[in-house]
């Protein structure tokens, strides 16, 4: 079964933001917006849920901190304790000041890298991906709205024109 998709090309970020609000107010679902730069308030206007990347990053940071401390405890306290510079070698807690820098670095290392990997996976971004926007001008200066039609093409086109779209395109997607 094929579906029909209507693309509206806009040339201003404020216009498309208002258009999204107006169209959604009419109860029509806007499937996607492609833009050359982040438009503030667009995620809210589209009804997107807030991103949870920051929470993920916090968890990754906690993992990094725990693994870092576990590693240093095992290597310096448990496996082969040595007296270095007269520092206590029998307890993690008492030797902790010397372990702060590396524990901190590993926290940042895990939080940053695992968050980036999560981001790339969630957005399905990877080297070799051939995905592009339906209109290459959306990385330059055009803004594209995508709405799936369910037999209401004429209404959608009229609505997009009314909200300031410069061009309208229809496409069949298999």
């Amino acid at each position: 079964m094929s579906k029909k998709v209507i693309y509206g090309v806009y040339d201003d970020d404020d216009v498309i933001l208002q258009a999204v609000k107006d169209i959604r107010a009419k109860g029509i679902h806007v499937d996607e917006v492609y833009s050359p730069f982040p438009i503030h308030g667009l995620d809210h206007a589209l009804g997107l849920k807030p991103s949870r990347l920051a929470i993920a990053s916090f968890i990754y940071g906690c993992i990094g901190l725990s693994l870092g401390l576990l590693m240093m405890w095992y290597m310096m306290i448990q496996d082969w304790p040595q007296i270095i510079g007269g520092k206590p070698n029998f307890s993690l807690l008492q030797n902790l000041p010397a372990f702060v820098p590396i524990a901190f670095e590993l926290t940042v290392f895990f939080a940053a890298h695992l968050m980036v990997i999560t981001y790339l996976m969630r957005c399905k971004l990877y080297p070799g991906s051939s995905e592009t926007s339906p209109d290459p001008r959306t990385t330059d200066d055009k803004f594209l709205m995508e709405i799936e039609a369910h037999g209401n093409e004429a209404d959608l086109i009229a609505l997009m024109k009314e909200t300031g779209a410069q061009e309208i395109k229809e496409e069949q997607i298999a």
Partner: peptide
């Protein structure tokens, strides 16, 4: 990396 500028991607970005 196959960037297309979707609204959700920008939000995450």
């Amino acid at each position: 990396f196959g960037w297309s500028g979707k609204a959700k991607h920008w939000q995450r970005f």
